[in-house]
């Protein structure tokens, strides 16, 4: 039982990271109906930017948790801005010129952008894995059984809290602010939104920027949680987050968060109880099962073909 609880905690942490990435997929799909396959690599770029920022500022492990958290918030802010610039640039250069083209065209450029980002980072940062010493270490024991000790680290708490804060802030943005309203309007009827004077292009760019910023925070968390990154992490994390978005129902924001959690838990439990080598298989099998049996996802709307 204790073992189960421990895995549950680990799963939630991993799920938070996937959930944050999944939002970017689902939001872009909602607004322009394309899967942004470069999103996983924006997450990777976010992780690298975080790493570089950490090194530039010379942030090292500290015994003071408050100082550590303050430093990390600074790093998160910087990497959100830089990843946002990446998101904006990708949309501007690779997707906007193809808007109104056939549906597959932006999908193909998305794959192109993905390959470009991977190689760009590989060429500039090198192909070797990059380690980072733990900045926030320590934790506390919450359950002590005779055979197994359940521990929750400060890092895990920070990840989950940060995710909850970002997700609630983001939900507020979508449901209450005028930008969120405009995004939802573009999602439903882009042409009509335009006729009401909404600058659709800017709204779409903003969507990419927000998605990229959230992914970069996920990148920072990944960096801190695992302590190593390389130029290839965007691929598997991206596909798992994509699975999370599909599982939750593409286009649904609460679905992306829920899907992220479920995928995180599935992966961790599979690794814990069956085989850790095949944990990716578990997540991807999930994608196949969902696509076949529940294509609309957990919280998605069934697709109604417009005539």
């Amino acid at each position: 039982m204790n073992y189960f609880i421990q895995q549950f905690i680990n799963g939630l942490t991993l799920g938070s990271i996937y959930g944050l990435i999944a939002i970017g997929y689902t939001m872009v799909y909602g607004i322009i109906g394309m899967i942004n396959f470069a999103h996983g690599d924006v997450f990777m770029v976010g992780a690298f930017v975080s790493l570089i920022t950490v090194i530039v500022f010379g942030i090292t492990g500290t015994s003071s948790i408050a100082l550590g958290i303050g430093a990390l918030i600074l790093v998160a802010a910087i990497s959100m801005v830089i990843a946002g610039v990446y998101g904006w640039t990708i949309e501007r250069l690779a997707y906007r010129p193809l808007r109104g083209s056939f549906r597959l065209a932006p999908l193909i450029t998305a794959i192109g952008v993905s390959i470009f980002l991977q190689n760009f980072v590989q060429a500039t940062q090198g192909a070797r894995v990059k380690p980072l010493n733990a900045i926030i270490s320590g934790g506390f024991t919450i359950l002590e059984g005779n055979d197994f000790v359940v521990r929750i680290t400060y890092m895990q708490i920070l990840i989950v809290i940060l995710t909850v804060v970002l997700m609630s802030g983001f939900t507020y943005l979508i449901s209450k602010t005028s930008l969120g309203r405009a995004q939802r309007a573009c999602e439903q009827d882009m042409k009509m939104a335009m006729l009401l004077g909404i600058d659709v292009n800017t709204t779409i760019s903003t969507t990419f920027v927000i998605g990229a910023a959230l992914a970069s925070v996920a990148g920072l968390m990944y960096l801190l949680y695992y302590g190593v990154i390389d130029f290839y992490i965007g691929f598997s994390a991206g596909i798992k987050a994509f699975t999370a978005a599909v599982l939750g129902g593409v286009g649904s924001l609460p679905g992306a968060m829920l899907g992220g959690m479920v995928i995180g838990l599935i992966e961790v439990f599979f690794a814990a109880y069956f085989s850790s080598e095949y944990k990716d298989v578990a997540a991807f099998s999930m994608l196949i099962v969902v696509l076949i049996f529940m294509p609309q996802g957990l919280l998605g709307r069934p697709e109604i073909e417009k005539v």
Binding site: S178, L179, A182, L196, G197, I198
Partner: peptide, 14 residues
Amino acid sequence: IAQHNRLMKASAFT
């Protein structure tokens, strides 16, 4: 939604 532009300006672009 129809008053989006005025609100965007008032909210300093969100």
